[in-house]
């Protein structure tokens, strides 16, 4: 810590909301800013206030991190692609008379609830403005989405009596999303 209560309080505030690595980096920058103002001859209190003003209040810095967090950006991309992939499957299932597929009611219910949970979680992460924690939901939601895509693709392949163009397009859309999601999810879960 920098040794001034205002700087320490700002770092503590940042630490409540942001990952430890980001906080260490911000603490270094804030301390550097504080020392810079001290070197101009300001007394410690004035230097600390000037440093925080120059650095940005903690809520401004946190909001900037949330806005540019990988979790929020990935969630926005997945939410944006959802209607296109969902539309492909809607056409494939209508043309393939999916209501005749022998899928037990509990499985249909589980898929429906899983879908709602994933969409809700992604919407929460995509619209986060001040909570970095909310953006971290994307990792788990991405895993859920990959599972749903895999289940639907495999299920449709096993249950569909004929391969139709809409089914092939929907399958390609899901597989593309699955591959792209798999590339970012590990970083989101460990970041």
């Amino acid at each position: 810590m920098a040794g001034h209560r205002l700087i320490d309080a700002a770092v503590t505030d940042l630490a409540r909301h942001l990952p430890a690595d980001a906080v260490d980096e911000l603490a270094d920058g804030l301390t550097e800013t504080y020392l810079q103002h001290l070197s101009t001859g300001l007394d410690p209190d004035a230097a600390a206030r000037a440093a925080i003003a120059e650095f940005g209040e903690p809520h401004v810095v946190i909001a900037a991190f949330v806005r540019q967090s990988p979790g929020r950006r990935a969630a926005q991309a997945l939410v944006a692609s959802g209607p296109a992939v969902g539309g492909c499957w809607a056409v494939a299932m209508v043309t393939g008379h999916a209501w005749n597929w022998p899928v037990p009611a509990p499985v249909r219910l589980a898929l429906g609830l899983g879908f709602l949970a994933v969409v809700s979680a992604l919407a929460l992460a995509a619209t986060a403005r001040h909570s970095y924690r909310r953006t971290r939901i994307t990792g788990a939601a991405g895993l859920g989405l990959m599972t749903l895509d895999a289940v639907v693709v495999v299920g449709a392949a096993l249950l569909s009596l004929t391969v139709t163009w809409p089914l092939a397009i929907a399958t390609a859309a899901s597989l593309t999303r699955l591959i792209l999601t798999a590339r970012v999810v590990p970083r989101l879960l460990t970041g």
């Binding site: 980001a22 980096e25 911000l26 920058g29 804030l30 800013t33 120059e54 650095f55 940005g56 903690p58 401004v60 810095v61 900037a64 991190f65 806005r67 540019q68 967090s69």
Partner: peptide
Amino acid sequence: LPTGTVYPA
């Protein structure tokens, strides 16, 4: 710029 906003970028 506010220094703190450079870091997320």
